[in-house]
Nucleic acid binder design. Structure first.
Length: 485
DNA sequence: ATGTGC
């Protein structure tokens, strides 16, 4: 049999397609958005093969989408979207990923660069000291009891609001208001609880970071205005997820799904795609545990926001409200959610799996905050450490192309191991200093493994999204201070 | 991504 993923058909400069191959068990086409370079790279590793595998799963609808930043992941490509019928389809932990509700939030200020430049070193230092980061942060997280953690898992940011770590305004501009319904902490294992309890308010490692930025370019004045964004402004971007708790939920439910595979008669092209019928006991339990992990991640980003505001207050001797440190928005990029989408002209409820894919809902969507309903949903595409990031805006077209989604980041061009062979700490640090960026990192390894050179060009990813009108450009942000694990 | 896996 010829492997169908080897020959995607070019539809246009930025769209490639693989028609359903019955012999291979494909139920729907695979659609790939990207230029020739990006698509060639996807063919050379397992990215498209994995998307083809997903297109064979029970209840898969319309098409499997690979976004411009797509690359191979655990079973399901990172930068992938797939929607399954809620009654006939499956839900799959590997198709959400290990870092459940990894996501990005942006905090605005009323400051411009000159006002913080003299204190930038001190600010970065203070943030680094007050926000635990790395794999094993020693101290600093709020210590939650088991029952407090359960409240965080059940209520998300609502609990932080009740306890002085969030404002009503923060809740208004978080996806799902920071509180995913139908979360059940009793479906989260004891091990996951133990791992998560000391981690609320910690950044983690890898490509997770907190960045002080300057707004470099405005591409959509009206949308920028609605978001309170202006040229030259200082913003803060936070990129992190659900830490050990989400990781453990994924591990636990991969096993639970695997153990139930035979019972449900599901045949898989790849055991990493272990899944359960969406409405089975196992599927429902996974969803309730995943929703809990989602609440954990939003709470984690909220707690870091709290620490960030305190750091700015302390270093700049102004209150957070004087500094107008408002949350612009918080959006997840590793989730599965039931949403209504048009399929063959019919509105239908499907369980949308977005792994390394950002929701990109258009103006008028009831699921986006009222203050953005006239313009569209804010989307943040983080670049790698010390490179630019983008604010994009959800567009109507994404509902046709990608189940209302767009890209989530730059994506690696080489492995961590390879980055050590090609670069060393000193040269990366020098290069970052030359750009005038203040960087504090937990480890030297992290600096090399997350160097700008080892990632794709995020500008190109934003550009493709814009040209396809999946999500359009609002503003480009450049880093001036970075803390990372 | 991760009480990494090399």
């Amino acid at each position: 049999m010829v492997s169908p993923w080897l020959f995607p058909k070019k539809i246009s400069d930025l769209e490639y397609r693989i028609e359903p191959d019955a012999e291979y068990g494909m139920k729907v086409p695979v659609v790939i958005y990207g230029d020739e370079n990006l698509v060639n790279k996807m063919v050379s590793d397992r990215t498209i093969e994995q998307a083809v595998n997903v297109s064979t799963l029970p209840g898969v609808q319309k098409h499997v989408v690979v976004l411009p930043d797509g690359h191979q992941g655990y079973g399901f490509p990172v930068g992938g979207v797939a929607g399954m019928d809620v009654d006939e389809g499956i839900i799959s932990p590997g198709s959400v990923g290990y870092d459940i509700n990894c996501g990005v939030r942006l905090i605005r200020t009323n400051l411009v660069e000159n006002q913080i430049k003299p204190k930038l070193n001190e600010l970065v230092e203070h943030l680094f000291e007050s926000i635990p980061s790395g794999l094993h942060p020693k101290e600093g997280c709020v210590k939650l009891t088991k029952s407090q953690l359960d409240e965080v898992l059940a209520q998300g940011v609502k609990w932080l609001d009740s306890n002085g770590y969030a404002t009503k305004d923060d809740l208004d501009v978080c996806e799902e208001n920071g509180s995913m319904a139908d979360a059940d902490p009793s479906k989260v294992s004891e091990t996951a609880h133990t791992r998560g309890a000391p981690q609320v308010g910690s950044l983690g490692s890898g490509n997770h970071f907190l960045e002080i930025q300057r707004v470099e370019e405005i591409h959509d004045t009206e949308a920028a205005k609605a978001m309170g964004i202006f040229e030259g402004q200082i913003t803060i971007l936070i990129h992190c997820g659900s830490r050990g708790l989400g990781h453990q939920v994924c591990t636990d439910y991969l096993k639970i799904c695997r153990d139930s595979q035979e019972k449900y008669g599901i045949e898989l092209p790849d055991r990493q795609l272990a899944c359960a019928p969406n409405n089975s006991d196992e599927g429902i339990a996974y969803k309730q545990a995943m929703n809990s992990a989602m609440n954990f991640a939003w709470s984690n980003r909220q707690m870091i926001t709290h620490y960030t505001r305190k750091s700015f207050e302390s270093v700049l001797h102004q209150s957070e409200s004087d500094l107008e440190m408002n949350l612009v928005y918080d959006v997840a990029h590793n989730i599965a959610k039931v949403e209504k989408h048009k399929i063959d002209g019919q509105e239908k409820s499907i369980i949308v799996h977005r792994k390394g894919a950002t929701r990109a809902f258009p103006a008028g969507s009831p699921d986006i905050p009222e203050r953005y309903r006239k313009v569209g949903q804010p989307i943040f595409i983080p670049g790698s450490m010390a490179s630019a990031s983008w604010i994009l805006l959800g567009n109507e077209n994404s509902m046709n192309l990608t189940f209302g989604s767009t890209a989530h980041g730059a994506g690696r061009v080489m492995s961590r191991t390879q980055s050590h062979k090609q670069y060393n700490y000193k040269q990366i640090i020098e290069e970052i200093q030359e750009k005038g960026i203040v960087l504090k990192s937990m480890t030297r390894y992290g600096v090399v493994e997350e160097a700008p050179e080892v990632y794709k060009d995020v500008d190109a990813i934003a550009d493709i999204s814009h040209r396809l009108k999946m999500a359009t450009k609002v503003a480009k942000l450049v880093p001036i201070g970075v803390i990372k694990g």
